[in-house]
Amino acid sequence: MDPKVTSAQIEKDGSALVMAVSCHGMFDLDSCNVQPDSCALPKGAAFAFIKAVQTVNQRLLGLSEKNKTLLFEVVLLGKDCEEHIKLNIFDSAKHYGVPAALLYQQAEQQAINRLKVLFSGDLIGLSADSMVCLKDRGFTDVHIQNFKAAKECLREFVVRIGEMKRMFGHEGSPLHTSLMTVWGSRDVCASALKTLRGWGLDVDEAFCLAGATCGPILALLQPHIVWDNGLHNLKGVAPLLSS
């Protein structure tokens, strides 16, 4: 960690944006057995994410010392080496209403200067009323309750991201936000854009796929975090991070 940004520097008034990352996300623990103990573990999917978070923190502090309250704080979760436990954590986070996002594997390690967050337009664009009709699509009441809770939690996260983002201009911002509506219509996308704006965040990019596969777009977009909440199944994305 950069000594300039340690958790000690983050105000302890509960206002920092705390993210918990599983140790699987931070390091590639699968190679534990083949690597000698003395070697550092290979970097995991979260590594580029942590570096990007550090960049945002440094830039925030660079703007003003007052921004201490706006910083990200990352907590490493260690007890999840078994796959089913990892899933348990993810499910528990959902269960307790802790917002959970997915960490997208970065194909290149270059993405450390900008933190890219992708939000699901399908989740954000749906009103609570519209969510009821998800039942016709094979989702259970529990799922729908989770979506409602997830949207509420997401709101807090969006508000904080929006506050951070306003600290930077449009040009050269270390925070990059996108909205992707995978199977909602353009109107769901418009509604999501307005909802996000209402929460204080104007996203940079918007994609409306109308049922087209999101893989090729995700591969280009290379987000660090995908706020998806299981509303659809994103291929190649593993549930690794809860925030």
Binding site: S178, E205, F207, C208
Partner: peptide, 16 residues
């Protein structure tokens, strides 16, 4: 009848 779009916020749309 346009449901699909991408707004790339300044970056090149060619990849898309």
């Amino acid at each position: 009848f346009i449901e699909r779009f991408c707004m790339t916020g300044g970056s090149s749309p060619i990849g898309y």
